[in-house]
Design a protein around this nucleic acid. Sequence first.
DNA 1: TGTCTCATGGAAAGCGCTTACCAGATGGGA
DNA 2: TCCCATCTGGTAAGCGCTTTCCATGAGACA
Lengths: 403, 403
Amino acid sequence: MESNEMGKRIPNALMMTRGHESGNRFPADSYDCNNRMLLKMPETVALNEELSVTASTLSEVAKLAGVSPATASRVLNGSARTPAPEIAERVRQAADTLGYIANAQAQALAKSSTGLIGLIVHDIADPYFSAIAQGVQAAARQERRMVLLATTNGTPAEEKEAVAAFAARRAESIVIAGSRSTRSEDARANTELAAELDRYCRNGGRVGVVGQAILGVGETDSYRTIAVPNERLAQDLARELARTHKGPFAIVAGPEGLTTSDERVMGFQRGLSDAGQPAADVVHVAFNRNGGFDAGIELAWRIKASGQSAPEQRLCIFATNDVMAIGVAAALRDQGLRVPHDASLAGFDDIEWLRDFRPALSTVSLPLEEIGRLATIATLSDDDGGPAAVAGSVTLRRSTSSP
Amino acid sequence: MESNEMGKRIPNALMMTRGHESGNRFPADSYDCNNRMLLKMPETVALNEELSVTASTLSEVAKLAGVSPATASRVLNGSARTPAPEIAERVRQAADTLGYIANAQAQALAKSSTGLIGLIVHDIADPYFSAIAQGVQAAARQERRMVLLATTNGTPAEEKEAVAAFAARRAESIVIAGSRSTRSEDARANTELAAELDRYCRNGGRVGVVGQAILGVGETDSYRTIAVPNERLAQDLARELARTHKGPFAIVAGPEGLTTSDERVMGFQRGLSDAGQPAADVVHVAFNRNGGFDAGIELAWRIKASGQSAPEQRLCIFATNDVMAIGVAAALRDQGLRVPHDASLAGFDDIEWLRDFRPALSTVSLPLEEIGRLATIATLSDDDGGPAAVAGSVTLRRSTSSP
DNA sequence: TGTCTCATGGAAAGCGCTTACCAGATGGGA
DNA sequence: TCCCATCTGGTAAGCGCTTTCCATGAGACA
């Protein structure tokens, strides 16, 4: 036994509970409007040295109410059988008095169902992920679940660890957001991740993946992916841009092997090709703001070298996500170049917090919060309404308008 | 028993485990470098109809290893007593073979310690909170804890519910971020929140609050607040601005009664007064981007009405957080006004994602991630190094430079 | 060789709940 | 009036672990 943990039993901790008459701070029984047990603050007094007292248990409540634990359980924690109203009332009173809060761990153990949802993201501070997290949280709340959070910096190894941790906690489902990687150095970790997920699923867990499927995990019905049509949308974007932009294109991409980035690059190139344009140069950098900045510096050089001549020479830069695009913009500005005057710039994601940037960023809008919500619901519901997919749309703004 | 939950026992689900020789996908025992149990994928086959099999238990591992559950527990899940190396090895092998993952719920129940940290924020999609969440997550990982996330929209009523839910899950500590409210309509919910926290603490939980103390909760050593010197920093900011800005000031604040906003307003006014300037007008709006936008429209009107005359008439606007400042900037731009040409603008928080905005926003830098980390550590460590506080600093950028 | 002390593995008692099953009561129909 | 179906509360057996306590065996020392 450790010393000062939550729920620690303190032997012989006598616990006296004064009744409501003794200066209860609460204004009577007025707000037990929801059907949750009314959790009033018990004014407890420990009679021995120990100040800390123990959370009261179901049996204590039962004893105080003069019923069996079974009955107490039935009235307090929802069951098919409902004890007589008079008894139920007594139990509820007792629970009130003792300030009873059911021990979710014990319930989980007994019912084998924890009400936990695991969420895995690369970086919770990244607005892309925090928007998704928002959706997951909303769905979880709606389904009366709690969310466990894990951040992994995008490495499959840490993702695997997170899955194992969630499995240990017997999370009912896991939502994984963030690009996959097909890089060879991640191959082994990916395999392990897939194995871990597979085991998790076989033990009854459900998994929802945002974006692309995780390699090596079979598509069972306990494993869903919310497909984001990165490729098609990037293609649309390219076609749309090619309609007005006549100069060359460049792509600022994440590291090769980062699936999301790769998909967007491929789609964009195809869109250009559809429009009869030559393929764009691709610069590979880190898939974040600073990566974008680095690429921006590089591109600024090229632009300046090209003499910023005719409008047909103007470069159109597609950054494979908004945050990178912001980095690119910062770098261009840093180099004395202006968007869209000296170059057009487009991003991807349509991050809400970036909408007030100027020049307003052309991008592909993705319903991120909705994606989080869908992924969560998908792992919770039984109807496998086929592979869920989300819609996105090209959003043209000033950053790609003609100068 | 419900039907398809994680950990559901399937009666008589015979489970056969093939050994490593049978086509194990893993490249031998090469990466059990950390002292965690090596979790290899068991190639299990259910012999009856049921496809889903149950996670294996400690007893199964013990049986397979030919030892008692006690011994298995001692070798697998860290204990003071370490069984003989030869036995330990056998147990570890068995665990490997079965793909054993300890049931954290059961452990929690037995040890009364869950390894859970609860995090309560207003809105996880808000970069202010997601930055703090990042810090909490980092600290939690370092301390080998998992974080449970709850978002509350800033209402004390939902915060109270979150605390109750965390208490039910026996989270070892709770970190609460986000401004308090002293509005009268929140008074009752605040009291209830305080009572809930109080009970939680008395049951051995620790609480860390970012910003200001929660009213009505006694400052015990199980309850810490990470003080953010909003008032002093706002005062510094005002003094700093007053040094160069000679025109009038205006404050864009959150709703009256929102403590963080109130503190920043007070500090700013005091700073102005220190500098011999008259107090600023205060506009109260929602404490978010759109609130800032609304205020910005209003202020744009005033600016235009004043005829944008002499530099001594130029307005300096202090928005009580960065996100509001961005809203103000958007509104001014919308109304054809330019920052800093037609008005100066400053924010508070120095949100990382907003640093690429132009004009660059003068603000007060706060180490948000560090704050999250500190709050978390504070609730976990025993040394009560006194009331922890964080430093911040005034950061002047273009948005308040002379036109 | 005998006694005492350690070291070590196992038995068993929980941790706080849920729920299958049981026994007693109740009521309705024959 | 009797029997059976039904309802209701209680009993007890888990859920999967940890940990105390005990029994056994091995050394240590005289």
